[in-house]
Write a protein that binds this DNA or RNA. Structure first.
Lengths: 338, 338
DNA sequence: CTCAAATTTGAAAACGATTTGGTTGGAAAA
DNA sequence: TTTTCCAACCAAATCGTTTTCAAATTTGAG
């Protein structure tokens, strides 16, 4: 059913019907009500593409998916999708074709030029992120999930990675640990730096000297967790506690600890960061995993929300959200054994 | 840059330019080459929404995302996205607002009516799946990822779940196991039935009587794996082998086995199904996990491919792909201990 | 009761492409 | 030479809305 047809059935002009449905003020309430009601009854829905063409809105938000098949991605997207369900806005998923750097900029540039999105969400930003500079230059609205130090105004939502790791590390120190290892995310991303800072600050403020040997970084896979924890624990002066970057890393760490005949929550304490997954919970691990926790899904929902505001004109300068992170203590952390 | 403008710069009519770019035959090769080249140079790209409006194509494939935040979803999508990158087709992610059944049909109906997708991918179909009937009735092209027995013609791509589980179970029987437990997916989905059948057939063909107590089903979470494995192993006549539905389930099973002081690959053999994740690999588990393996990402890529064919006119009746599943033996399976 | 102001409504022009149904000019056929 | 045909191109209509500008109607003040 087209607008023409629908309007004719109502004995109104397309103009009025369009206005009634889009909530313009210059249409009487009684007419608006009738139009709305009949639209439902007769099943009239404006053609999306016509609307988009006319208004110049793309009706979609772009999300670039990293190549490494990040497991938290689905949660973030689920959160976004939930928020956008009632909106006339879609999510456009763009895969990173190539991890090559130059290619990444190309991808963003093409995405903007394609006019297929009204806004873009940038994940895992770097301190000096060219993507941000590019999007700003091109005038494409965008929200950064994470933070960047770049000297370009931008909207962002981030969790307090630094604080989270500082608290986690401090707590381990409180428990008497002094040799605390840290498995971080891929170097380069701001969140990894923040976590690093939280870790270092905690040590320093307690007068513990930092041992660079105790720091590793890389993708959030179980394999990295295992390899690094294993090699750490096998060395002469092994750590008594490990701060792990993700649930998957934690799995690897647990495995490494066990494989050496040790026990998590005894010889080795572990705290990991938990993005809250329905299928793998810190509570269910054995022993249950102490974790810094922040819901990825909730972040997705809120990001979608903020992007919508951005698109409808809110200034990026006003949009800065730093979410606190909970520290939840469970069985994987214990006082150091003397 | 608009078509008008671009055409004028070339000294051609919009008609010819449009045809040249869309590969119509009635334009000379030399002209086509020139147009293509200049389009790149001047950065002309047809406005997506105008194209979509005019052609009536939505330029997107709909994927309904289950509410349970399935972890394999991201992999499937990554696969799809990879294939669609070079195409002018987007992925539209629609979240299931409510697990309520009636609501689900509403969702699909609205999705079709919204005219926002050219085709839909249906996940985890049931033997008699109303969604399939609905989409067929509404004339919306769709591809089923999985299978259904419903008496409605439809395209599908599925992996050989039945064969996979049969082989896994048979292999365990070969190793001397007779009490073999099975942790299946949510009851109702066809794949769960197929796995069940594979399991039963394997037992029956070897004359082993089925014990209903050894079967469980539910979401693919570590928690289910743990709970069920634990309660199984604690009973009077415990199983000596477990077939698990997913990697997450397997994690839970491993945990349960260990928590009872037993060892996977000794007292208890385990085989799980592995969708191949970059962040959690069967090879890295300890002991390494024997698994039936099939790449979710590859399935996504192929599904995208098939949907494109579907949209451009290929008959759904011709599209039936059954992918074989590998069985990869590692350390988690061993001869039964007498 | 009149006239201006305020409220509702409509006609028609966009939005930026595709595509139908012609033209044109030159080569091949008669 | 004339006719026919074909390759290559183009003008204009169209897709289904929104929105500008103008007209019609109602309201309210004097």
């Amino acid at each position: 059913m087209k607008l023409r047809e629908f309007a004719k059935q109502l004995g109104l002009s397309p103009t009025t019907v369009s206005r009634a449905l889009s909530g313009y003020p210059e249409v009487s309430e009684v007419t608006r009500a009738r139009v709305a009601e009949e639209a439902v009854r007769l099943g009239y829905r404006p053609n999306v593409n016509a609307v988009r063409l006319k208004t110049g809105r793309a009706g979609a938000i772009g999300v670039v998916m990293g190549r490494a098949g990040e497991f938290h991605f689905a949660e973030f997207m689920a959160g976004m999708a939930e928020r956008l369900l009632t909106e006339d806005t879609d999510i456009l998923v763009i895969p990173m074709a190539d991890p090559d750097h130059n290619d990444e900029m190309q991808l963003y540039r093409r995405l903007v030029e394609s006019q297929r999105v009204d806004a873009i969400i940038v994940h895992s930003p770097r301190p000096n992120d060219e993507r941000i500079a590019l999007l700003h230059k091109l005038g494409m609205p965008f929200l950064v999930h994470g933070r960047s130090d770049i000297d370009v105004p931008h909207a962002w939502l981030d969790i307090d990675n630094e604080g989270a790791v500082r608290r986690a590390t401090s707590h381990l120190i409180d428990l008497g640990h002094t040799r605390i290892a840290m498995i971080n995310g891929r170097p380069g991303a701001t969140y990894a730096l923040h976590r690093d800072k939280g870790y270092r600050d905690a040590l320093q403020s307690r007068g513990i000297e930092l041992d660079p040997q105790l720091i590793a970084s890389g993708n959030f896979t179980d394999e990295l967790g295992f390899r690094f924890a294993r090699s750490l624990l096998e060395q002469a002066n092994p750590p008594t506690a490990i701060v792990a970057g993700s649930m998957m890393t934690a799995l690897g760490v647990y495995r490494a600890v066990r494989s050496l005949g040790l026990q998590v929550g005894r010889e080795v304490s572990v705290i990991a960061h938990d993005d809250v997954f329905p299928y793998l919970t810190a509570d269910n691990m054995a022993p249950s995993l102490s974790a810094t926790r922040s819901s990825m899904r909730a972040a997705g929902t809120r990001c979608a929300d903020l992007v919508l505001q951005l698109v409808s004109g809110r200034s990026p300068l006003d949009i800065h959200e730093l979410w606190p992170v909970e520290l939840i203590l469970r069985e994987s952390t214990a006082p150091v054994q003397c």
